[in-house]
Nucleic acid binder design. Structure first.
Length: 587
DNA sequence: GCCGTTTTCGGCCCGACTGTTTTCAGTCG
């Protein structure tokens, strides 16, 4: 049982408790907090259980939660969940995923109409049985039907690169209105997460109403979900949801902090503020007033003087912290690090001196060797590695020994014409199903860099897959493992294998792990990168470009590295070529 | 159900929008 599965079961448990009518909301929250801890854990919690580690050392895991997790890992079951589900059908959890439908409404639907599944709900709504329920109405019934329709075809979250494509034109459109004084995208987009669920736009506007109207009449808008004085929500024809919040200038910084999140980061920030007698909201940072003294907030606290709000810097400063870059705002210890003056000096795109994975027309790339090389030189790189596929990938025109020799001739000719950049001989060598490499040692010995990767048999049982990777990494000529987990975002899950063992082996044998910058891959993931770093495994960031245009995907990799707290010293292609090669040289 | 510079009890982050309500509950982020 892996972290993602444990988290799913505990999430289900929390929702079932809500439907059951658990009167203590903090008990529910405790489950959700535990879920967050598990999702964020770089190491498999399963392994901690197996090794007899004390789970209560983890944040938000107490005695009870530790025993739940241990039971789950060791038996695959959770008796407390089985108890609750005797009373509450587990299928009800699915219904709460519909927007506008929460635990209370699900309970009502079940009690009154015996609805337990999405199909039941759709049938009841179509028959007009929902509108007559107390607490529901005609509008609710319509919304439920629409939500079910959308739920059925919804494919998941948007890749960050897709979000970039959809958001940039919207920003341009909004900025054409002079009443928009400032506009920024906040949310997971600003944190540069690998995927985004929706887009949070934040604006300062002299006159909110017409700006909101401009927003809701953006041509690609398919439907307007909400439209208030300060908040609006639309769905674009692409199915992307966009929220716009309009705020006064004095609140812009606090709003930017608030809407950039993450939620968990905000919660920690507000707790920190409360300890200092301050209350943080999207409108600003306020002193807490004596009861009856100040203005009462919606949470019942009396607020006094505003102490910050216009800029993010002053909001953080008000709670004694330096500004924290958005990529770190996920409550992985950044607030503590900031408080201690120990924020990492994160890697930046300018630190990279070369790109170590790309393809040419010799295999499945779209541009010639010379075009790729010239494009890399134009991007200011000091070196570049060309990594066309090996022969096992016949569909890509993978190179056997004879073709590889031919390619080297062309490489030498092209390199001679481009003294401004150093050309590293390389290949993306297939790791065969048994862990052997697809290219002969005699050829590998003549490469500057041996990049190895899995492109087939992603479905091997975990033990076999692990064995395969360990064997490949132990090959005396292997240097870099490309896209190590093989995942493709929204399309293919990571391979099932023991990443911790693989990382340990890579550390031992001086093999680096790739952070594949392609926004469809972004592999290793951020938490895996953190685990790699912890084990002393070096990282390289490469685009895996299959065209000149793909070379510009590098920033996605850098953003992911930043989310993983990586500094230049953790990433080998920040080094000059000779240092890079000696760092990867085998003992 | 978790947690502790308010420490083993009594707290636990903040606010807007919708639909249905006649003053607010439920949901969401």
């Amino acid at each position: 049982m892996e972290n993602i599965e444990i988290a799913a079961v505990l999430t289900e448990m929390a929702t079932l408790l809500e439907i059951q009518g658990e009167t203590n909301p903090f008990r529910i929250r405790a489950y959700r907090n535990a879920v967050y801890t598990i999702q964020e854990s770089p190491d498999p919690v399963r392994k901690m259980v197996e090794e007899g580690a004390d789970l209560t050392e983890l944040p938000a895991i107490g005695k009870d939660m530790a025993s739940h997790i241990t039971e789950l890992v060791t038996t695959g079951r959770l008796s407390i969940l089985e108890e609750v589900s005797k009373e509450i059908p587990r299928s009800l959890v699915q219904l709460t995923k519909l927007p506008g439908v929460g635990p209370k409404k699900v309970r009502k639907l079940w009690d009154e109409l015996d609805i337990t599944t999405l199909d039941d709900l759709a049938a009841a709504a179509s028959a007009g049985k929902i509108a007559v329920l107390a607490g529901f109405g005609k509008k609710s019934e319509e919304k439920i039907l629409e939500a079910i329709e959308r739920h059925k075809k919804r494919s998941g979250r948007f890749r960050i690169s897709s979000a970039d494509e959809l958001v940039q034109p919207l920003i341009e459109y909004m900025l054409q209105d002079e009443r928009v004084e400032r506009l920024e995208v906040a949310g997971s987009y600003r944190r540069r997460q690998e995927t985004v669920g929706d887009i949070d736009l934040l604006a300062i506007a002299s006159d909110a109403e017409p700006v909101m109207e401009r927003f809701t009449s953006y041509p690609p808008v398919r439907s307007v979900e909400k439209s208030g004085d300060t908040r609006g929500t639309v769905i674009l024809s692409s199915d992307l949801q966009v929220d716009l919040r309009i705020l006064p200038a004095e609140s812009y910084g606090s709003a930017l902090v608030y809407f950039t999140g993450s939620k968990e980061h905000n919660v920690e920030l507000r707790k920190r503020a409360l300890q200092r007698g301050l209350s943080v909201s999207e409108y600003g940072v306020f002193e807490l007033a004596e009861e009856g003294e100040g203005e009462e907030s919606t949470t019942g606290r009396d607020l006094g003087k505003r102490v910050a709000g216009a800029t993010e810097e002053e909001v953080y400063a008000s709670v004694g912290l330096p500004w924290i870059t958005p990529e770190l705002r996920t409550n992985r210890g950044e607030l503590e690090a900031a408080a201690n003056g120990e924020l990492p000096a994160l890697i930046e795109f300018e630190d990279l001196k070369g790109d170590l994975q790309m393809h040419s027309t010799w295999s499945d790339g779209k541009n010639t060797i010379e075009e790729m090389l010239a494009a890399c030189a134009a991007r200011g790189y000091e070196y570049v590695a060309l990594t066309d596929h090996s022969k096992a990938l016949a569909m890509t025109g993978g190179l056997d020994a004879a073709k590889l020799r031919e390619q080297w001739k062309e490489i030498d000719e092209v390199a001679a014409r481009h003294p401004e950049i150093r050309f590293l001989r390389s290949q993306e060598v297939d790791i065969l199903a048994d862990g052997a490499l697809d290219t002969e040692d005699e050829m590998l010995e003549q490469l500057d860099l041996v990049v190895i990767a899995v492109h087939s048999r992603f479905d091997l049982p975990a033990a076999k897959q692990t064995e395969r990777l360990l064997k490949a990494i132990q090959h005396p000529l292997a240097n870099i493992v490309a896209h190590p987990t093989g995942r493709i975002i929204n399309r293919r899950d990571p391979m099932d294998f023991a990443l911790d063992e693989v990382l340990a082996c890579a550390a031992e044998h001086g093999v680096a792990m790739e952070l594949n910058a392609h926004p469809h891959r972004l592999d290793l993931r951020d938490i895996d990168l953190m685990a790699a770093r912890k084990r002393g495994v070096k990282i390289v960031i490469s685009t895996d470009a299959h065209s000149i245009a793909d070379l510009d995907l590098m920033p996605y990799g850098v953003e992911q590295a930043r989310r993983a707290w990586l500094e230049p010293a953790d990433v080998l292609n920040t080094l000059p070529a000779d240092d890079l090669l000696s760092a990867l040289a085998k003992a």
